[in-house]
Design a protein around this nucleic acid. Structure first.
Lengths: 228, 228
DNA sequence: CACTTCTATGACGAAAGAATGACATTGCGG
DNA sequence: CCGCAATGTCATTCTTTCGTCATAGAAGTG
């Protein structure tokens, strides 16, 4: 699942087209044709992006946009506005109201898809690969945080780099020398045995009682982190 | 000054048009027609957004985009690509390469302006006059005021910029050098340890007894401000 | 089993990194 | 001109982390 997209569009055919395309890209899609309902759905479960038609029944799209931006909870949701008109004024109003992108009908579905992708990339960096995962372990390189089963773990700088090194190379056996080169730097004159000690510290830090140890010792070769 | 925009465009007339329009909107504009030079200019002083023509001499725009995205330092700069062609493939490639928006010539200057504004709103919220928030801390960039739980706080100029710098990058760990570049300016020859001192002053200024400290120290890496 | 080879572990001193308090300097408004 | 706030640097203290070693343990080998 790449993320959740809310489609607000009252033209049934178009709505289905969008839903189909987005689903095919791996997004979870929820849809409605009604502005009021859209606002409710956003509060119920925050989507990662919203595609919002300008001309929908009851509440105009721009009003939905305004409402969303006004509320602190929803002010940051990326919004892509969709309109039949080619009026420049409309577009400008859309942007001024807080829309992040604006596409006019008729549009190419592929264009819409890449634009949605661009929005998500900016709004949710975590969707674009800055977070490494191994089973229930998450490592976020940007925020320098590691969690296991949601619980934050405390790792020293070297343990952090070591874990990242392994998570970037799942299933691969690496020698101590390779680890030294990759984690300490090519020119480190550190004893190979020191790697053992850091492996132990890393294990101690990430394994709570009952957990399975992600790091496999390969005798006479090195270590590896297996996919679960 | 609303922010700095780098225009990369080798059509002199168009370049001037863009420069003029952007300047009129209050942006500080720098311009070049050369891709290599553009990369240098970005490293020299990080702009808040880049308008990048697809067809420029020597290095194609898309290559500039790729280079920028590859480097961790510049990976976050918003890029708006500009092209004469109407080819959908080009557009998709542009987005896939990491562009944030894409406009085809001929375009309306006003459209370009609002799109740039939308990009900046996401990337540098403080430039658009909005109020940044972190839990019960509010920072109003335009009036230079900071409150916590409604109580006004007194920050020195540097502490203010430092706090704004962090609030624009929630959850992100930034090195002392990055902080120096972003808060003091790219060419400051200030000791890295001085950052520590200002962090302390900032902490002292915003944390009243019983408050949680928003600033996390990341040993051997820098600091980060976590979302509550 | 006896032996060799490799790994895990606990302890410890050294070093690194960060927090803190103090101080000199600068710029500004009164 | 003086006082005050802001700023950059330094020395000191404090905490965390690192690298090594000695020893115990485990895994191959013949």
């Amino acid at each position: 699942m790449n993320g959740t997209v809310l489609v607000v569009e009252d033209d049934t055919a178009l709505c289905e087209l969008l839903t189909w395309n987005l689903s095919a890209e791996g997004y979870e899609v929820r849809a409605t044709g009604d502005g009021e309902e859209a606002l409710l759905m956003v509060r119920e479960q925050m989507p990662d992006a919203i595609i919002l038609d300008w001309m929908i029944e009851q509440v105009p799209g721009i009003e939905v946009c305004r409402q969303l931006r006004k509320d602190k909870e929803t002010a940051q949701v990326p919004i892509l506005m969709l309109t039949a008109r080619g009026e420049e004024e409309d577009m400008i109003r859309g942007f001024k109201t807080g829309a992040d992108d604006y596409v006019t009908k008729p549009f190419s579905p592929r264009e819409l898809l890449v634009r949605v992708e661009a929005l998500l990339r900016r709004a949710r960096p975590s969707l674009t690969g800055s977070v490494l995962q191994w089973g229930d372990i998450e490592l976020d390189a940007t925020s320098h945080r590691v969690r296991r089963g949601g619980e934050p773990l405390h790792l020293g700088p070297t343990e952090f780099r070591l874990l990242r090194y392994f998570m970037e190379r799942p299933n691969r056996v690496v020698s101590r020398q390779q680890i030294l080169d990759g984690v300490w730097g090519m020119d480190s004159d550190i004893d190979e045995r020191t790697v053992d000690v850091h492996i132990r510290r890393l294990r101690k830090a990430i394994n709570r009682p009952g957990d399975t140890d992600p790091i496999r010792t390969v005798r006479a070769a090195g270590y590896a982190m297996d996919v679960s």
